[in-house]
């Protein structure tokens, strides 16, 4: 275990988890669906709180094997934000535009999965849709086709977009509901559109369990 791992574990055990308990109070439905092995977790995205919420579902010692996939244009825009997000959350930055052969997001995520990491992916690719579920970008489906044996976990996050919406920095500490769906194993020959459609349908279904 490296120094970075230790810092992340301590940061979550001593700061994030207590704060999430006292200020936010997360209610998890379907906790038993959280996998212990490698996984690709797919969730809706409305807030910076999403990553914090998802990471705090796991025991801090497991976090070093999980990387939240994050927009490089936002999270690496200056060295301080880049350094901190790498240090405390172990983000995996991928570009959203100006994609070339060398910085292809699919390649970056593939390498990470091959190294044994689990990934947190927000297929909407942005917080812009807020509490509504936007269209899913196809990258996640490409990834799943390459790694059909890794279970895909659909998750719905409720209220994070009300607590800390895009553009706001003052939190309104409502309760967060997290609904974890059953792991999905796709067929080897599943089509891209099929995968995307099913994932989006699953996340939408989970949103109905959030009350």
């Amino acid at each position: 275990m490296g120094a970075r791992d230790l810092i992340q574990i301590l940061f979550f055990a001593l700061v994030v988890k207590p704060l999430m308990k006292l200020l936010v109070g997360i209610r998890v439905h379907g906790k038993e669906n959280l996998p212990t092995g490698q996984f690709i977790l797919v969730a809706n995205h409305a807030s910076h709180l999403d990553t914090l919420t998802l990471l705090s579902l796991f025991p801090p010692s497991d976090l070093v094997r999980i990387r939240p996939v994050a927009a490089a244009d936002y999270w690496t825009r200056n060295p301080i934000i880049h350094g901190l997000s790498r240090l405390l959350f172990n983000i995996l930055p991928i570009p959203r535009s100006g994609i070339t052969r060398t910085n292809n997001p699919l390649r970056i995520m593939t390498e990470s999965l091959e190294e044994g990491y689990s990934l947190l992916i927000f297929p909407e690719g942005t917080r812009d849709y807020g509490e509504k579920l936007g269209p899913f970008r196809p990258g996640v489906a490409h990834l799943i086709r390459k790694f059909p044996h890794i279970p895909c976990i659909p998750v719905f996050l409720k209220n994070t977009g009300r607590i800390l919406p895009k553009g706001q920095f003052l939190p309104v500490p409502l309760f967060v509901d997290v609904v974890v769906g059953k792991p999905i194993i796709f067929r080897r020959d599943a089509k891209l559109e099929e995968i995307l459609e099913l994932l989006r349908k699953k996340v939408t279904e989970l949103s109905h369990h959030a009350d």
């Binding site: 919406p165 706001q168 003052l170």
Partner: peptide, 13 residues
């Protein structure tokens, strides 16, 4: 609540 209520909710909290 509305997204527009954010600041008022923060004050109320």
């Amino acid at each position: 609540t509305r997204p527009e209520d954010h600041l008022a909710l923060f004050v109320a909290f």
